[in-house]
Amino acid sequence: MFRFALRRSAWAIPTLLLVTFLVYIALRMGTDPLASYMRSNPRATRSKIAQYKELNGLGSNYVTGYFSWLKNFVTFNWPKSIKGSREVWPELKDAIANSARLGAAATAVGVVVGLAIGIFAALRPGGKRDVAVNTAAFVGISIPPYISSILLQLLFAVYWSKWFGNTLFPTSGVYPPGQEGFDLVLMIKHMALPTVVVAIQVIAVYSRYMRSSLLDVLNSDYMRTARSKGLSEFRVLMRHGVRNALIPVITIAALDIGAIVGGLIITENIFDYPGTGKYFLSAFGNGDFPLLMPLMVIIVASVLLFNLIADISYAILDPRIRLD
């Protein structure tokens, strides 16, 4: 198992390099880092410009440029942001922490609820609750996150306070302005709506995967064997049904990490939540190459990491997968 994980992660490194190289090219072409810098610092001295180009690997050759960027990146010799000339890491670190918190909460809620709903629907295929779940999942998939965000904001920011005279769930930020230090209740209240928005997507997707996967499993012979042992229906369902149905769901889950991050970006922007999504869009809008590259590396790395985790858990869940 350990060697399997090691070999898979060994593969991840060249992939990471290749993809970041492509991203580097795309961003250099798309954001024109030099022009953005000149726009923000019209009176920069020649040596300042040279230093900026050196740190960001903006030489004329893309390949050597990428490697000089890479050298600075891995030695933590990161350039400062174009706008405001700020240190990148503290800002990125906070954004990642906030996003990870939101993403983890939404994924946890979404996966638990989605799987439960999928199981619930699969028990009586074609029955009333199956149709209801299926329809609800479709509605969930068909509502883009920005629309559910807007509708929730409309409901809570405008009408809730109008009707009840208080603010139940704030619709922006992690804390009210001026709040210092950690406050769990406030944080949960602020996170509630964006969590719901992202979780809706996760629920819609997972309930459908789980339903169809479990339906396949329920028709298999070993379910009958399990029943013939005299096990309780619940045990038959969990240990033989759900346990086996999870295997295909796990593989799909890995591919979904991209969708969840995408949902986060949209949701964070609407709820003014200081995560990577907001970080990305403002940096992208400013063409801020020094802010964008590290974020891209993190995104690519996390996509690869989750793929790796899915591969490994797949191998653990399904003994038929050969590890060598």
């Binding site: 795309a26 798309g30 991209g258």
Partner: peptide, 23 residues
């Protein structure tokens, strides 16, 4: 295709949009 499907759609869309726009 695997890579593209795994990558956050909006990020890829925006980055590629700008890249194409510069060609």
């Amino acid at each position: 295709t695997d890579l593209f499907l795994a990558f956050p759609f909006l990020v890829a869309l925006l980055v590629v949009r700008n890249m194409f726009g510069s060609i």
